[in-house]
């Protein structure tokens, strides 16, 4: 209770204290109720600090929110944001859908899957363009060119951007996943299985590709290139976002500040992100420049999402209609903040 009192009211305060104490002793339950009511009103009036949970995956393209939280940019915007780390974007998205988080970041592929299956989620910005989804292959065991993958054992994590990349990669070389033996695994286990020789290659995102390369230096790494463009999105619940456009703007502003910070202080940002992701500084340095850390909403995002959406429907053998992904992007707040970042 931050109310300040004047000296002149000292006597009044003493009497008030005595009165409160008596009330507490004689009517404890009513006192408790009154205290709760008083505190919530006081809190509501006291300030604009709104507590929010931001679910972030442990991935390098999520650098902007991590830096923003670390440098206090959210706090500057009057937001009390707590960053919750998840081992994958899919889980972070689940937290948003279950109402445990109000803001969330993930690559665009899980968002598309969620939207296609009828979940309510809206993209308010993207914070990175990335090339993090890659394929790593053993160069022995008779795999000289991609077509040699036929019949080999490959791991992927279904529903992720690297999974999508797998389909695009195989299609580009005239194959389908049915031509290989595809196992579902999470990236840390992929690295272990790869090092053991249990699998011949895997599709995953950084830093797990780097780890695989460290375990087997003679591996070959394939980048997504033109086959797949990735964005790290910022998502919120549509009803909440539309009801609090001011909050969304503040989040976007904080992220834009982080964007400027990263441009100006690269090594410091590297250290922040490395600490948050528990990664080695050197490993992070190797992959840092493969991403572009910008707050934007690019026109090609809708096209990419639509293409992924079509693939998702085919994959799930669903008879649901293909959504209009433009409707799932809430561009107004970013457009108000920095119009040149929105090219939809």
């Amino acid at each position: 209770m931050k109310t300040e009192r004047d000296h002149l009211f000292l006597d009044f305060r003493a009497d008030l204290h005595a009165g409160i104490l008596t009330f507490y002793k004689t009517h404890p339950r009513k006192f408790a109720l009154a205290a709760v009511l008083f505190l919530s009103v006081a809190r509501a009036l006291a300030g604009e600090k709104i507590p929010l949970v931001y679910a972030v995956p442990a991935a390098v393209p999520a650098a902007l929110p991590l830096v923003a939280a670390d440098r206090g940019f959210f706090r500057e915007e009057g937001l009390d944001v707590r960053v919750a780390m998840f081992s994958s974007g899919r889980e972070a998205l689940q937290a948003l859908l279950a109402g445990q988080a109000q803001i969330q970041s993930v690559s665009e592929t899980p968002v598309v899957h969620a939207i296609v299956q009828g979940n309510a989620v809206v993209v308010v910005a993207t914070v990175a363009r990335h090339q993090e989804a890659k394929l790593i292959l053993r160069s022995d065991r008779g795999i000289l060119k991609p077509e040699d993958l036929r019949g080999k054992r490959i791991a992927t994590l279904p529903g992720t951007n690297s999974d999508y990349f797998m389909y695009k990669f195989l299609a580009a070389h005239g194959m389908t996943p049915g031509d290989l033996k595809v196992a579902n695994m999470s990236p840390p286990e992929m690295v272990a299985a790869y090092a053991d020789g249990d699998i011949d290659g895997y599709f995953a995102w950084e830093p797990h590709i780097q780890f695989g390369l460290a375990a087997m230096p003679q591996s070959r790494v394939f980048y997504p290139g033109a086959l797949y463009r990735g964005w790290m999105t910022v998502n919120m619940n549509p009803a909440y976002a539309r009801a609090h456009p001011d909050t969304v703007r503040r989040i976007v502003r904080a992220l834009i500040k982080a964007e400027a910070f990263i441009k100006a202080h690269k090594s410091q940002s590297l250290r922040i992100v490395a600490r948050r992701l528990r990664m080695d500084d050197d490993v992070l340095r190797m992959v840092w420049d493969q991403n572009q850390y910008r707050v934007e909403l690019d026109a090609s995002l809708v096209d990419e999402m639509t293409e992924i959406g079509r693939w998702s429907l085919k994959l799930s053998k669903s008879d649901k209609p293909l959504p209009n992904f433009r409707q799932f992007i809430y561009a107004e707040p970013l457009r108000r903040e920095r119009p040149k970042s929105v090219s939809l």
């Binding site: 899919r90 994590l157 033996k181 196992a183 579902n184």
Partner: peptide
């Protein structure tokens, strides 16, 4: 099956979870 498998019913359940297919 959910941690590392090529097929199976639990694998399928995990796969559907990853793709947000709750009914499946």
């Amino acid at each position: 099956e959910m941690v590392g498998s090529f097929d199976g019913i639990a694998y399928r359940a995990f796969y559907c979870y990853q793709l947000f297919q709750s009914e499946k």
